[in-house]
Every structure is written in C-alpha cells, then in structure tokens.
C-alpha cells in the first residue's frame, strides 16, 4: 500500500481548498443551504484526504495528534452550550437569540422577504453554526483517525521494498 507522488502532491494541493469550502459552508449556514453539520463533514473529508495520501504514522509525526482532535471536539460542544447559556444570563431564557438585531456581532437587522443576504445577521445562529462545525470536524476526524489506525501498517523499510514486490507481481501474468 503505497500512495504515489502524484496522489500525494494532488492531495496536498487540494486540502486547503477543501478546508476553505467547508468554512464557507459553515459561515453561510444562515443564508444558503448548508450549516454546521454539513460544513464540518466537508472539513473532515479534507482530513480523510490527508490520511489517504499520507500514512497514519506520517500524519501523526507531521500533522496533529488524535487527542488534539478530541480537544477540538470538546471545545465545539462547550462553545455551543456556553452560547446557549449566555441567553439565560443576558436575556430571558436558554437558547434565546440575544444577539439578533442588537447591532453587535452578527447583529444587523435582517430585511424581511426575499433579499440578497447579509452575512452579519441572525444573531447567535452563526455562532452556533461555528460551534457545531468545530464539533463535527473534530468528531469525524477522531473516528477517521482511529479507524485508519486500526489498519495494519507497514514499516518504512517495507514501504521502500514494496514497489519492487509490486513490479514482480505485475510481471507474473
């Protein structure tokens, strides 16, 4: 199991664009189809591409460790709950949309009816979108990392020897 130079280079080039596209889906969750869950899944797809292009061992050496993804996931859930609890403290109840039309962050008043869409509207909904996006990204990445870690891995010497074996098996028929 060897990923060639072309696959590795293409994956390395594509991963930032996949991340940016996932970030766009998360950020525009209140304006267009999408949202936290979908955008987080798209970003986790980028992590899957990194894992396919490079080995799990190499990813652990040069990328991020699995326990950091667990921390990212917990941070997303904590941000979600804290944003909801802030509604209890600053306004009338749990999950109250206390940022909507307040003039602050994401606080612009929305224009009723069909409009072109303003990114800084909808109060706490974009914040919750980001929280859920972070959580889904971390959670799916943890699952992917552990499942890739369950695969039988070859050592570096076997990797170097393996193309030779592939060439031999291809010549047989």
């Amino acid at each position: 199991m060897v990923t060639g130079l072309i696959g590795r280079t293409a994956g390395r080039l594509l991963v930032p664009f996949i991340f940016i596209f996932g970030f766009y889906i998360v950020a525009h969750g209140h304006l267009s189809p999408g949202g936290g869950f979908q955008g987080g899944a798209v970003i986790a797809t980028g992590v899957a591409l990194v894992l396919v292009c490079y080995y799990y061992r190499e990813c652990m050496e040069h990328f991020i460790e699995a326990k950091n993804f667990k921390l990212i996931e917990s941070a997303g859930l904590i941000l979600f709950i804290c944003t909801a609890l802030a509604g209890l403290v600053l306004a009338s109840g749990f999950f109250f949309n206390w940022l909507n039309a307040s003039g602050g962050l994401f606080g612009n008043a929305v224009e009723y009816g069909a409009n072109v869409g303003d990114l800084f509207t909808a109060g706490i909904i974009p914040v919750l979108n980001f929280a859920v996006g972070i959580e889904v990204f971390g959670g799916l990445s943890v699952v992917l990392l552990y499942m890739f870690a369950g695969l039988k891995e070859t050592t570096k010497e076997e990797d170097d020897a393996e193309p030779h074996n592939f060439a031999q098996t291809e010549e047989l028929p």
Binding site: L31, S32, P33, G113, A114, N115, V116, G117
Partner: peptide, 11 residues
C-alpha cells in the same frame, strides 16, 4: 427550498 436569499417574490 425554504431559503429567502435571492428567492422570487411571493414564493
């Protein structure tokens, strides 16, 4: 789709 961004009038 239930989205008001760039929707036609009275959808």
């Amino acid at each position: 789709a239930p989205i008001f961004t760039s929707a036609p009038a009275d959808p």
